[in-house]
Amino acid sequence: MQPLTTEQIRAVIARGKLRDTIFKALGIFCLAIALLVIVALIADMAIKGSERFTLDFFLNFASRRAAQAGILSAWVGSLLVMLVTALAAVPLGVAAGLYLEEYAKRNWLTHIIEVNISNLAAVPSIVYGLLALGIFVYQFGFGQSILSAGLTLALLILPIIIVSTREAIRAIPAMIREGSMAVGATRWQTCRYHIIPYAMPGILTGVIIGLARAIGETAPIITIGALTFIAFLPPAPFTGEPPAGLFDWVFAPFTVMPIQIFNWTSRPDPAFEINAAAAGFVLMVMVLSMNAVAIYLRYKMRKNIKW
């Protein structure tokens, strides 16, 4: 073969560059679709639902008449479920992450726990619903309550919180640990006064992302049998007759935002479509603002790393 002439080489390069340009356009096009979907989703729900963005919508219970139906029991339910989820998942997740990073020895038990966590992250959420139905609802007798729902979602987001805790802890340089141990602190004191505070922003990011995921979850909550039509509120938390009454609220039946949307979406009457759009918009705002806070936190963290 003769070596290529300059013209032939230039032709080869021109072809390659054309392919580069085409691919670049394709990449931007795909990204644009992603962006377009987000914009289309939000715009569609905002426009369709616009007539329902009134105070009444937030303060009314569900109703058979579309125009009078509101999301009061849904958003209150979502908040209460999130409260239970956070109370259960944050201590458990942070403790588990702390254990795996700071205490665990490299042995079979640690290995099993780690493999387990990564496998749990791939288990479909509806399977968690079945777990909760069998264990929480019937075995433990929690019933179809806020407690059952909150614990289910807590198990669901536990891997997210554990992984982000571990990543945050791993980013802390060894010298911090050594410095603390060198002045005689115990392992727990080191964790308590150094590791956890320094890892806090990272942990917080993980918690917010986890809760944002949980608040939009529908399938596991439907599976445990949350009601779709609730025209009353659970008792306000911690206000009942102590001691037993303090926790009345966790055993109350409930509904949550995603279930309310599902209910309205699956009704044949198009008037409910408007409600679904409005409620969907509210849920999107909740989820997206939580995500935005997490993204912002992570961005800030990257900017002021102190070591």
Binding site: M1, L4, I9, V12, R15, G16
Partner: peptide
């Protein structure tokens, strides 16, 4: 191959 050569015999040789 970057230069567009895909002839097996030429490639083997080179």
């Amino acid at each position: 191959r970057v230069r567009g050569e895909n002839n097996k015999r030429v490639l083997d040789d080179k």
